[in-house]
């Protein structure tokens, strides 16, 4: 394995008497696309801020590009691109100017910044918006501009904190396409998300985080193989009847999860499990057979849904 660009060992972050991150360890290889998947409040953003060298750790070891962020903050940040959870573009400047001032923060020459800003607008599909005010952009455009801004210093590592939260499905797909291109070009991506589909699409490898701890680690496919069955049957009997119906289903499939709004049956062959349900004389209001996803992995590991 090549030298990791990020190495975290027993990383801890405490705010007062609240432990936001409770000793997590992971490594990220150059060119890898690495994800932190977990619900809101799991400690993902706090971890990202420590990796981004803007939040000193309380304990443990952290090395970014071989440097300690407590001591080499500006040095590390000169090599990072950061896409924060909420946009902080300067609304007093038009689109192109936002890229230029940001490039200047890195001490890059004006001519170089101008040239890159033009290329990045192209990449973000915002060339015709160069002189537009930030307030006149849609949410998806703002996110794309923020990603373009994060690339202005040609970073070795791109950190994305919840990159598509709050976007409509179409805007998310455009964004994923852009991020996928970066991944193909070999940019190291580190992203947090509470969307399992995002993690599945973009991450080579991920850690499932909950309550400041890592619950599992692996590729999306391997995590699903390890913690879930191949398929899942989702049944809705109506919120009052789900629990009682589940009792009558004992023994169908490998495992049954009862959620407030539905019953999940984990089985390698979903259709056969569904037949078995009907065989017991139970008729669901809706039934659906699907492949297992990271959502199921998370449910298995924590007993809770990702989005609550």
């Amino acid at each position: 394995m090549p030298t990791p660009v990020i190495t975290a060992t027993d990383l801890v972050k405490r705010f007062g008497d609240f432990d936001a991150v409770k000793g997590i360890s992971f490594e990220v290889a150059p060119g890898e696309s690495f994800g932190l998947l977990g619900p809101n409040g799991a400690g993902k953003s706090t971890t990202m801020r420590m990796v981004g060298a803007v939040s000193p750790r309380t304990g443990g070891e952290l090395s970014i590009l071989g440097l300690d962020p407590n001591r080499y903050g500006p040095e590390i940040r000169s090599q990072l691109g950061v896409v924060p959870q909420s946009d902080n573009l300067d609304v007093e400047l038009p689109v192109l100017q936002n890229l230029i001032v940001y490039g200047r923060y890195f001490g890059l020459p004006r001519a170089l910044v101008k040239q890159r800003a033009g290329e990045l607008l192209e990449f973000a599909q915002l060339t015709d918006k160069a002189k537009t005010k930030i307030d006149d952009l849609s949410g998806g455009m703002k996110r794309r501009l923020t990603i373009a801004r994060a690339l202005i210093n040609d970073p070795r590592i791109l950190l994305l904190d919840e990159p598509t939260t709050g976007l409509d499905p179409q805007a998310r797909h455009i964004l994923w396409d852009r991020l996928f291109r970066l991944k193909e070009q070999g940019t190291t991506l580190v992203l947090t998300t509470h969307y399992m589909d995002e993690a599945e699409q973009l991450c080579d490898r991920l850690v499932v985080v909950d309550k400041g701890q890592i619950m599992a680690e692996g590729s999306p496919a391997s995590l699903i193989r390890r913690y879930s069955s191949r398929e899942v049957v989702e049944l809705r009997f109506g919120s009052a009847r789900n629990a009682s119906a589940a009792e009558q289903l004992a023994g169908v499939g490998e495992r049954i999860e009862v959620l407030p709004d539905r019953v999940l049956i984990y089985a390698d062959d979903g259709e056969r499990a569904l037949e078995a349900v009907r065989g017991r004389g139970l008729e669901a209001i809706t039934s659906l057979v699907r492949r297992s996803s990271l959502e199921d992995v998370f449910l298995r590991l924590t007993g809770r849904s990702l989005i609550e």
């Binding site: 030298t3 071989g66 440097l67 500006p74 000169s78 090599q79 890195f106």
Partner: peptide, 26 residues
Amino acid sequence: FDGPSTDASAAALRAALRPRRFGALY
């Protein structure tokens, strides 16, 4: 800089020279 000396860290140390010196001017 009394720091690690891989290629990546050396590049980082170089790249931060100007921002460390002129940051307020930016």
